[in-house]
Design a protein around this nucleic acid. Structure first.
Lengths: 194, 194
DNA sequence: CCACCTCCATACGGAACCGTATGGAGAGAC
DNA sequence: GTCTCTCCATACGGTTCCGTATGGAGGTGG
């Protein structure tokens, strides 16, 4: 049994860093533990990166592309605004994106993370607002509801990651998302007696 | 000028710990920095507490009372369900509670914090659901909308703390909360052309 | 006034990291 | 084969924190 020792490039470290963020948050981006997991030593890391912050920057840049650009490109292929919003909801809730998103938001006080978060919020809410405007909401109301939707999204993934027991699953989750989407679109409530 | 050296009790450490959580999260609850801030040394701390975790437990217990019990007691004095929900919204958004809430949620993977978070979510969503049921929603829909409201709350304070630029202020914030509350109550949207 | 009890200061050892220095090991150029 | 450049291993010093040990200051009861 030969122990392979493939040489590593910066991308290997960046990917490992993103994985670590999903598992242990920013604190997981620690050089020595990452080296151990990659089966190498700090010597390798400090060859490819100046320091820990440089690795963080690289990981955040990769996050930008994967977690915002790619999703919005995919969703935008849907035919109409409601379909796009629904696809967006499904894409961002029913996935393993949540841990990375949650941990990064939780680290937005870090000077390297804050700008990435601001970029993401701006781009995402702008996209939602565009869809709502296309649906007939006036611009100010569209902005409000876009922020509303985004806050709900943030809270949702937060609960999914931190307190999974609080979030329904399966059919109940479907019903829940139905209620949420209808409310965001300004449709009146159905299941109400009084 | 006499430098007073008042002797400290456990409560002083607990209060300092909660303050530190609001400022730097769980990582802020570190014995030596807290000692420095209190103008004393670790010797004092390890007299009053067995270890760092014991301090955390004490701080969380204090949090339970201040950040859930007290608020719900106050709000429940309002005359009707809508007034109670509105008062709840105002109470939890327009305050300096946010940092502690956000940082604690961000630390819900810690074994001592997780139960406290579960307790808080359960109690708070149950209270909201009770109000919604009183307004005529059937129980399942009330639960869905209670979770919806709570997710929105979590996301909101998260944004307020992490990315304040994304949240409107003043009159715009009022309008925003109006939209949110109306949507949660299942009222149809007004500012819509199509 | 002295013995005791509560509280705190100081010093120490240990763990987990970051970052630096330095000496190679391996592979391609020629 | 040997030179060189890329990449990695090892060892070291520095920082920040946890937890322990121990002695002593200062008020309090007898």
């Amino acid at each position: 049994m030969v122990v392979r020792k493939p040489r590593l490039g910066p991308d290997d470290w960046t990917a490992a860093a993103l994985t670590a963020i999903g598992e242990h948050g920013l604190a997981g981006v620690a050089v020595e533990p990452l080296a151990a997991r990659l089966g190498t030593t700090k010597g390798s890391f400090y060859w490819h990166f100046a320091n820990r912050d440089a690795l963080l920057e690289a990981a955040l840049s990769s996050w930008d592309e994967t977690y915002t650009d790619a999703i919005l490109r995919t969703v935008d292929a849907e035919p109409d605004p409601v379909a796009r919003l629904r696809a967006l909801f499904v894409a961002v809730t029913a996935s393993e994106r949540a841990p990375v998103e949650v941990h990064l938001h939780a680290a937005a006080d870090h000077p390297a993370v804050a700008p990435a978060m601001r970029r993401a919020v701006a781009r995402r809410t702008a996209y939602i607002a565009t869809q709502l405007t296309a649906l007939g909401f006036d611009p100010a109301e569209a902005d409000r509801r876009a922020l509303f939707a985004y806050a709900t999204y943030i809270g949702h993934i937060q609960l999914v990651v931190r307190i999974p027991d609080a979030v329904p699953q399966g059919a109940a989750l479907e019903a829940y998302l139905g209620t949420v989407l209808a409310a965001l679109l300004g449709q009146p409530a159905a299941n109400r007696a009084g």
